[in-house]
Write a protein that binds this DNA or RNA. Structure first.
Lengths: 251, 251
DNA sequence: GAGCCAATCGCACACCGTACGAGAGAGGCT
DNA sequence: AGCCTCTCTCGTACGGTGTGCGATTGGCTC
C-alpha cells in the first residue's frame, strides 16, 4: 500500500492504480462484483469482509490488498451500479425523453440495489461511471438549450427526483420484503393505528376514505407517483426554458 | 417485553406503550434525545448502545428495556427529527409558499441531521410526527385544489425533491467535514483527476471551463440548485393544476 | 411482612473491521 | 544458478459491536 497522502476523501478514484506482477488470484473487479451480489441478496448487513472472502475462496484480510477498507469497497460498488444507468445521446431523442430515460435508469438501478441509497449521502460519488453519467446529462441538457448554472441545477434536480422517489419506494418495498406480508396484510396491520390517530389527522383521514378503493396495487401506485412527479418536473423545466428565451444550439 | 406478534415491520408505532410503575431513571424520550445528540455529533458510527448507555450513566443493556433494539431506536430518532419540520396551515399562505416552507423544513432538518438520510430507505416512517407532516401536507394541497391520487403524488414529489437534494448536498458536506479541507483545496485535489478524465467528458469539460469562475461558494450553489429545482417543480404542479381545471375549494 | 413486577445491570456469545507480520511465489539481475 | 525484490495471500489477534439471559434491585399493593 503506497499510502498516498489523503487527497480529498482519500477517495479511491484519485489514487494511482496498483502495479501488478505477482500471481493475482483476486482482482478488484471480482471483489466488487461479489460484494454487489452479497448486498443485493442480503442487504447491507449481509456484507462482511469475512463473508466476502469466503465467497471468493480466500482469506478475509486478503481483500485488503486490493481495497483500502470496507468504505472504499462500498464506494466502488456504488459506482459500479451507476454503470448500469444508460443516458441517451443528445441527438437520439427529444431532451424530455432523454431525461426521462436517464431518470428512469437511475430510479430502477437504485431499486435493483437498494443498499446504494443508504450510501449516497456519505460520499460524493465521482467514480468513472458517475462521471460518465454527468457527462451524458450535460450533453443532453446542453442540446436542450440549458447552459451555465441552470444546466447544472437542472441535471441535479432530475437526479434528486430519482433519488428521492427511490428512497421512499425502497422504504416501502423493504418493509414488505422483510415482513414477507402482502400489501393487504400490511394495510390491515396499520389500520388500527391509523384509526387511533384519525382524530389528529382529519384531512388525511378524509383523503384516505375517499381514495381508499383506488389504492390497490402499491407497485403501480409507486410507479405512478414517480412518473407524475417526473412529468411535473419536466414541465417546469420546459416552461423555464421557453420563458428564459433560450435557443437550442444548432444540432 | 410483552413481545407482541410481529405486526407490520414489528414497528414501534404499532406496539402498545409500556406500562410504568417502577423507578424509571431512564426514559424512552431521554434515550432518543441522547441518541440524536450522539448521531449529530459523530455520525452513524458514533452511536453504539454502550456509548449511549455511558452517556446516560447507565448500563448498555438497560436501554433494551425501553427500546426493542437499535433499529427501533433509530426509527424513533428519525421520527423525532421529523418533528422539527413545520408545515403551515392552509389558510396562512398561498399553497406555493406553504409547500416551499414545508420542503425547506424537510431539507434543513435532513441537513441538520444527515444520518437520517441513510435511514430513510430502510423503513417507511409512520411515526406520529411523520403522520402529522402528512396530514398538514394533505391539508395544504387539498386547499390548493389537489385531490385523489394526484394529491398524494404531489406531496410525495415535494418530499422526494427535498430528500434527493439533501442527499447530494449531504454527500458533499460530509466529504468537506471529514477531510477538514476548504472547498478550494478539494477542488485542487480533484482537478488532476478531472483533467485525466477530460478526454472522455468533453461536454462536461466544456461546461466546467465556461462556468468555472461562477462556481465559487459551494454552500450558495447547493442552495441555489435546490431552490431552482423546487421552483421548477412548483411551476410544473401549478401548470397541472390549471390545466386539469381544478378549482380551489372555498377557503 | 409477603409477594409482585417494573427496571437495571453484568456477563457472555458471536460477529465485526482491520493492523500486523510471516510467508509464498514469480521476475529480474548479476 | 543464486539471490533479491516486490506482489500478493493469509492466520492471528485486538478492540469493538448488538443483544440474549438470568440475577438483582427497589418500590408498590395486599
Amino acid at each position: 500500500m503506497p499510502s498516498t497522502s489523503d487527497s480529498f476523501t482519500g477517495s479511491v478514484w484519485l489514487r494511482p492504480p496498483r502495479a501488478q506482477t505477482g500471481q493475482p488470484s483476486l482482482s478488484r473487479e471480482q471483489i466488487v462484483r461479489a460484494a454487489i451480489e452479497l448486498l443485493d441478496a442480503e442487504g447491507p448487513a449481509g456484507l462482511s469482509m469475512r463473508r466476502l472472502g469466503a465467497k471468493l475462496g480466500s482469506g478475509a484480510t486478503s481483500l485488503y490488498w486490493h481495497v483500502a477498507n470496507k468504505d472504499e469497497l462500498l464506494e466502488l460498488a456504488v459506482d459500479e451500479v451507476f454503470g448500469e444507468i444508460y443516458v441517451p445521446e443528445p441527438g437520439d431523442t427529444h431532451w424530455r425523453v432523454g431525461a426521462s430515460i436517464s431518470a428512469n435508469g437511475m430510479r430502477s438501478a437504485l431499486l435493483r440495489h437498494p443498499w446504494v441509497i443508504g450510501l449516497l449521502g456519505l460520499h460524493p460519488t465521482l467514480g468513472p461511471n458517475a462521471m460518465r453519467l454527468g457527462e451524458r446529462l450535460v450533453a443532453l441538457f446542453t442540446a436542450a438549450g440549458f447552459s451555465g448554472m441552470p444546466l447544472s441545477h437542472a441535471t441535479a434536480t432530475l437526479n434528486a427526483h430519482a433519488i428521492g422517489s427511490a428512497t421512499s419506494e425502497a422504504a416501502i418495498k423493504s418493509a414488505l420484503k422483510r415482513t414477507g406480508k402482502t400489501w393487504e396484510e400490511v394495510a390491515e396491520d396499520v389500520e388500527p393505528y391509523l384509526e387511533r390517530l384519525a382524530p389528529d389527522n382529519p384531512n388525511y383521514e378524509k383523503w384516505r376514505k375517499e381514495t381508499g378503493p383506488l389504492r390497490n396495487d402499491p407497485e403501480r401506485v409507486l410507479e405512478e407517483t414517480y412518473a407524475f412527479g417526473l412529468d411535473r418536473l419536466l414541465d417546469g423545466l420546459e416552461l423555464w426554458l421557453t420563458k428564459s428565451g433560450a435557443e437550442p444550439p444548432a444540432v
